[in-house]
């Protein structure tokens, strides 16, 4: 039962419309049979989706983004788990400073990070390489991974691990058999959030990517700068559809509110 009045309900509907309208219009325009931007009034057509195949750079960029997101979120998780355990378990000098440092990429504008990485990679010979791209994405997504793993690590009752120790488990066994299973939900959702953020990142990547390593959002951004047409709408529609599927999976597994309340920026 909703406890909202009719005015509140109307506001709510308007707000939801506001949030969804731009995405809906992208998907609608993608189905136009016309050669220019218009809503599909004379029937739906898949011609602009077929057209994507004629532009291999979109497909190439898609695979590059997929690889990049998978690699960087995996590395980010590998770095986040021990860091989160250190922060959650121990009180040590420098703990607050380290936490702030690890979360700092949320506060530093991505355009600044992009410039810093471009300058740095140029100096050390990583400019335009896929390695450089992965490294920069690891930094940008670590805060997302760290926050969720951290929340999971704080949630562990230390006595559960003490119980395992008292039963004769070695530190490695405790970690493998008890700690990891307990923080697993945080690790998995942290990885997914990191993956999505890496996949969507455009501002910093514009600086770091080269024509050979360009990602899908960057490819789309550069395309839009020149030209807005039904083709880019159909590419975006594919992206929206993909995200929607992931969203439903995430919601089913973890609950969207938990994912975001533990992970909202700031």
């Amino acid at each position: 039962m909703s406890r909202n009045g009719s005015l509140a309900t109307a506001f709510h509907l308007l707000f939801v419309t506001f949030m969804l309208a731009p995405l809906a219009i992208v998907c609608a325009v993608a189905f136009t049979p016309e050669g220019y931007l218009s809503l599909p009034t004379n029937g739906f057509s898949l011609r602009w989706f077929r057209q994507i195949l004629a532009y291999p750079e979109f497909l190439r960029a898609f695979w590059a983004s997929l690889w990049l997101a998978a690699l960087s979120s995996t590395i980010a998780i590998a770095l986040s788990v021990p860091a989160a355990l250190a922060i959650a378990r121990y009180r040590f000098p420098g703990r607050e400073a380290l936490t702030a440092l690890f979360l700092s990429p949320l506060m530093v504008p991505h355009v600044v990070l992009g410039i810093a990485f471009l300058r740095f990679f140029t100096q050390v010979g990583l400019a335009g390489t896929f390695t450089g791209l992965v490294l920069s994405h690891v930094i940008v997504v670590i805060p997302f991974a760290l926050r969720l793993v951290l929340a999971a690590s704080y949630g562990i009752d230390a006595r559960i691990e003490h119980a395992a120790v008292s039963l004769g488990a070695s530190p490695m066994t405790v970690f493998r058999r008890v700690t990891i299973p307990l923080i697993l939900p945080g690790v998995v959702s942290g990885w997914m959030l990191a993956f999505i953020n890496s996949f969507d990142e455009v501002t910093m990547t514009v600086f770091v990517a080269s024509p050979a390593t360009v990602t899908l959002p960057v490819r789309m951004f550069l395309y839009i700068q020149d030209n807005i047409d039904p083709l880019i709408a159909s590419v975006s529609a594919c992206l929206i559809a993909l995200t929607a599927v992931m969203l439903l999976v995430l919601d089913r597994i973890f609950g969207l509110d938990r994912l975001f309340v533990g992970a909202g920026k700031g």
Partner: peptide
């Protein structure tokens, strides 16, 4: 030693 904790500290998984 066998320990029974106040929170039981059972392995939830």
């Amino acid at each position: 030693l066998g320990i029974v904790f106040q929170s039981y500290a059972l392995f939830p998984h």
